[in-house]
Design a protein around this nucleic acid. Sequence first.
RNA 1: GCGCCGGUAGCUCAGUUGGAUAGAGCAUCAGCCUUCUAAGCUGAGGGCCACAGGUUCGAAUCCUGUCCGGCGUACCA
Length: 547
Amino acid sequence: MKAEKVKPLFLEAVKKLGITEECNFLFETPKNPEHGDLTTSIAMRLAKQLKKNPRQIAQEIIDQVSANASDMISKIEIAGPGFINITLSGKFYADGIRELFEKGENVGRSDFGKMQRVNVEYVSVNPTGLLHLGHGRNSCLGDTVATLYHWSGYDVTREYYFNNAGNQMQNLAKSIYARYMQLFQSDFPFPEDGYHGEYIKLIAAEIREKFDNTLKNPSVENMQIIRKYGEKWCFEKIKATLERMKIKQDVFYNEDSLYNTGKIQEILDFFKEKKLSYVKDGATWLKFSELGLQDDRVIVKSTGEPTYRLPDIAYHREKFRRGFDILIDIFGADHVATIPDVMAGVKALGYDSSKVHPVIYQFVTLTENGEQVKMSKRTGKSYTLDDLLDEVGPDVVRFFLLMRSGSTHLEFDLNLAREQSEKNPVFYLQYANARISSVIDNAKEAGIKLENDIDFSLLTHPREISLINTAMNFGQIILDATRKCEPQILADYLRLFASEFHAFYHDCRIIGVETDLQKARLALAITTKNIIKNGLTILGISTPDRM
RNA sequence: GCGCCGGUAGCUCAGUUGGAUAGAGCAUCAGCCUUCUAAGCUGAGGGCCACAGGUUCGAAUCCUGUCCGGCGUACCA
């Protein structure tokens, strides 16, 4: 955002040096404050092309830029091998903070996406069990990515894809049935590959409560009743957990509908017609080897049942047909293998697979006292998302699941999460917000009013400049986090920004200083609050005014 | 075997299309409350960026190889 304002001056200068083609150079914020506010290595990059000494090129650029003398820049100089360091003027910052202040509660919103239609698919758990921590990461990532797109000016649909037919539902029914029978006959055998979770026993107990012993005969009708009961039970629990996490979804897309409406058959026919599929050993294979992948794969088993690939491909085609410009899939690392198949399939159907953005996240481990807490499904003693929510609440859960990049393993430290103190990064952010709220309240009581007469150029203290500087990056941070589908970028930024606020608060008194300075500082505080509040809101974290 | 993700401070992790002296939080140690919320601020120590080569003005970042960890590699989803 800062860079955008200075860039035109440099593009002009570079053009004068004889560079006609689009040259993409960027400005960075130097780590060392002695190097100014912005720095660019463009001179070194152009050195080869122009066959000149980088320092000489830098000097020529500087001459050009200074000639167009802008009041945005107060100092511009060469450093080291040819860096151009720029120190921005007081006016630059005064204008910058004024702009942010005027945006008010809309700071961070943009129309960058031009209302392109985005579909974000997440959670997508089949109704056979309860949500655990891994699902939590999926849900929070998806939900936050969707919110980021919304703030960046896209038309977002939040989608949940599920399958309530197929083997796993039969398995659920069999598992519940076995637990149900065990209530009458304790040695009734439990299926080897059944769902071992404790919740199955709860469902079984409820069923006995309602139906007594009338379902003991495992007839098709009875198993159907059990299956439906289990499905409903699980889905309600899942939805309740999502609600606790403040995760919303617009569309629940049922895999069944792909069959009912003939979509699956259409795809089969298409592949057959294009000679991209063939039958071998009674199964239908898709020629992935002709679609740029290693091996052919089965799409319909010899039993006549499709493998997951077929509906996945059909589902993605439907998303394209529904008119989405961007398709985002949130997948756990265990699903990476399906991605190339779907991509290849979609491409073969004539759609632009580059519009599909899979977001992969690595696994979550839960640690307590330095030891890993088991979350295994099979042992039955899984630690569910609800258990975690009971212990630390949704704000902490969301922040912890979002504060790491999806590409790395996430260690969820229960001890730290339980900590209700400054050690816990969530409270650090919420505290900043509460602190500002308190100041704003005090200002109101003191009768301080902000009209259109704020002189932002009075904000010259290093802490003020530093805070404004970081505030001015907020818009770009939102866009970066959106484009990369990385809420962690925002979470990280907010920690930095809050720490800059705390330092400012410590060194610069707001209420009780000279009238004009008081107004300017209050306006800065209000802008800071808007940014922290919007940032936390995007992450789905509450912003209490008092703590 | 092959594919994907990772290996950065005691621990958990950042590190902006390759940039200047490698960053944060926690932990350890030392300071700061008669003043707007001390759930805060300031400072110190702590590093062979897994290892070995290569590319170039310049590498934690790019390339090759090796080692370690996780996840895949089904006519399971």
